[in-house]
Design a protein around this nucleic acid. Structure first.
Lengths: 103, 103
DNA sequence: AGACTATATGATTATATAGTCATACAACTG
DNA sequence: CAGTTGTATGACTATATAATCATATAGTCT
């Protein structure tokens, strides 16, 4: 039985990778099928599929089938909050480093 | 030159691991030295040191020297916001799964 | 049924990660 | 100075991860 720490780590891990971040960014405005996602992020279909599946099983994405296509979407609006906070942190860090260089 | 996506991934990765999550949890109330941290999380000193260093270079922790001891602290209050959100997501997911099992 | 499209998966490879043990280094203490 | 304490690091091992290519599967269309 997985404990809370492991669940949290799993969710964070499923966000903590450049290709997956690009997917999250692309899904910001709503669900998209795989055939839209992989060209948008310039990755192979199979690689994209694996990352999508990983985020799905971490509970970060949800999935809907429609004919041949499979649509993925962000499963929790909170995920976008997390992304926004992390972006803010990065920007702060970058401007901090700039100031340090100038001093 | 690292781009924004890679910076974000680096920060998230530095949070996305059970041992490191335990460290963050332990540092919630303020800075602690390594000698307090590793017994608190039941990990070896050397392993703890590596994780601390990793979070330091991701910009997630800061470090202060005082005599023999080195104190680490969470560098951005926003990190705790992220942790809170992720905890909320996990709890939602768990109760969702419970409901599904009951149906 | 056969051709086609969208997605997933097996096998493989290269690289990264977490953890351990032993040891080095740095700062304090008597 | 020698001994001690706190932290970091080198070398190693086992395991996980990301990416790729080829192929399988599932659904659609004529």
């Amino acid at each position: 039985m997985k404990d809370l720490v492991e669940y949290r780590a799993e969710i964070l891990k499923s966000l903590a990778q450049p290709t997956r971040l690009k997917i999250i960014d692309f899904l910001r405005d709503g669900e998209r099928c795989v055939c839209e996602i992989f060209p948008a992020i310039s990755e192979e279909q199979s690689n994209t599929s694996r990352h999508l599946n990983m985020m799905l099983s971490a509970g970060v994405l949800s999935r809907r089938k429609e004919g041949l296509k499979i649509y993925y979407a962000i499963n929790h609006p909170e995920i976008l909050e997390v992304m926004d906070i992390v972006t803010r942190i990065v920007k702060q860090d970058i401007s901090r480093r700039h100031k340090l260089l100038k001093t």
